[in-house]
């Protein structure tokens, strides 16, 4: 484990695609158990950064540690300790809820007993036990999203990366989803979430705002609102983005 509760540490993280700089010298730290919001407009470079932290993409340069492991050399160890939920839903639409849990639990190396126990617990928490044997494609979007989140934490990761987890769902479901995030954070799991919904940013303990591949602001939502003399994160974001 990383020293003094720092679980993600990035120093000058840079990613270039040819001449295009997607991430320009990002430096930030995330503490264990924190809900860290990674904000930015579409195309600001959020997804690129999250993919690097998850070990799906190699950075061009910079010193990056996730859960105490180096992203250049120890990606497999990082993968054991993180969960990931992407913009696209990662569930198999043609399998049942249980079959999805079993598959992901299985490839994370959980035993059959652990998978059953964990699935029972997570479904119970979502109050979706009745949907256990339903095919995913027959479920409403909000349910799928919660299930995808549950599957991302089936192996008890230390950090969970959520890449725009709430895009395309209604406000009530979003609210419920955030309740779930809070609960998970309470259990000591670090939440690293990207979003472009500024109301969601208010739920984060700390946020960073990215514009054109650079982090231009990073603090608690309250501190940022005070700094820019506005009431909401939405206004903060508009002020920052307009420069």
């Amino acid at each position: 484990m990383a020293e003094n509760g720092i679980i993600i540490k990035a120093v000058n993280l840079t990613k270039k695609f040819g001449n295009f700089v997607a991430n320009d010298n990002l430096t930030f730290e995330v503490r264990q158990g924190e809900i860290f919001g990674f904000l930015g407009a579409n195309g600001a470079g959020k997804t690129t950064a999250i993919r690097i932290l998850c070990g799906l993409l190699k950075p061009t340069s910079g010193q990056i540690e996730v859960a105490g492991y180096d992203v250049y050399k120890e990606t497999e160890k990082i993968k054991r300790n993180i969960g990931y939920m992407s913009q696209k839903f990662s569930l198999y639409e043609d399998l049942t809820v249980w079959e999805n849990f079993r598959f992901y639990g299985g490839i994370y190396g959980l035993s059959g007993k652990e998978i059953r126990k964990k699935t029972g617990y997570l479904l119970d928490k979502l109050q979706l036990t009745a949907a256990r044997d339903k095919i995913i494609s027959s479920l409403p979007l909000g349910w799928k999203q919660k299930l995808a989140f549950s599957i991302a934490i089936i192996h008890d990761p230390k950090i969970i990366f959520l890449d725009e987890p709430t895009s395309g769902v209604d406000p009530i479901t979003r609210r419920q989803f955030w309740d779930m995030i809070y609960e998970t954070a309470h259990e000591g799991i670090t939440i690293f979430v990207t979003t472009h919904y500024m109301d969601e940013a208010e739920y984060c303990e700390r946020v960073s705002v990215m514009v054109d591949g650079k982090i231009v602001a990073m603090d608690t939502p309250r501190a940022l609102e005070d700094k820019y003399h506005v009431e909401t994160m939405e206004e903060v974001f508009l002020k920052i983005a307009r420069g």
Partner: peptide
């Protein structure tokens, strides 16, 4: 296409 490969790639498989 459906994006599940990403989810698999992020596991220690």
């Amino acid at each position: 296409e459906i994006g599940t490969i990403e989810q698999i790639n992020v596991t220690p498989i």
